[in-house]
């Protein structure tokens, strides 16, 4: 789920940037340092939307670096259990397949794939194919898949999830 979240980030700025463009530099640094990172609490910071405030710089006595606290608003993405998401299949193997849902990797185990879908090891690239003849679905690399997140594992720097397509309206889209 996406949220608009007000967050704070602290930047240590080298003295060489002290100058007229310091603001631009700080903002650039903020974007560089923050976007694409993941915190277990808020999820992935997708994009900085707005800078709310930049504190006055505080010089560090020994290093000469200046510390700035930036309050900003960002779009964060955090997957939740039972959330239905769309993603792109990246890897398919006999254990299941991996789906990238934005920055999150979701694993769909073959236990959580409908029983009419079978792994076809002979296909190239490997795929899951539904045996059902009339409405044949095939899950291969780069296929678009809708899945439901069954569980998440949140590390400090990474979110991993497992998903299921073993329910109505889930699967290839």
């Amino acid at each position: 789920m996406f949220f608009l979240k007000t967050l704070t980030h602290t930047i240590l700025l080298h003295p060489q940037y002290f100058g007229p463009n310091i603001q631009a530099c700080l903002i650039r640094r903020l974007h560089d340092e923050v976007e694409g990172t993941c915190s277990g609490r808020f999820g992935f910071i997708i994009s900085v939307i707005e800078i709310t405030s930049i504190s006055r710089g505080m010089l560090h006595p020994t290093s000469g670096f200046a510390e700035f606290k930036i309050v900003y608003k960002a779009i964060v993405f955090k997957p939740f259990k039972n959330q239905v998401v769309d993603g792109i299949v990246t890897t398919v193997n006999k254990m299941g397949f991996f789906v990238e849902v934005g920055p999150v990797t979701v694993f769909v185990s073959n236990h959580l794939i409908p029983s009419d879908m079978k792994f076809d090891p002979n296909s190239n690239p490997p795929s899951y194919v539904s045996v059902d003849g009339e409405n044949q679905q095939r899950i291969v690399n780069n296929a678009n898949v809708r899945l439901k997140i069954v569980g998440t594992r949140v590390d400090a720097t990474e979110i991993f999830a497992i998903g299921t397509i073993k329910e109505d309206y889930l699967g290839c889209i």
Binding site: M95, F107, S109, H111, L112, V150, G151, R153, F160, I162
Partner: peptide, 18 residues
């Protein structure tokens, strides 16, 4: 992560080895 539960037998997806 728990993948599947059948009675008291549980299939777990190992974090480390997947």
């Amino acid at each position: 992560l728990v993948l599947k539960i059948v009675g008291s037998i549980i299939t777990v997806l190992s974090d480390l080895t997947l």
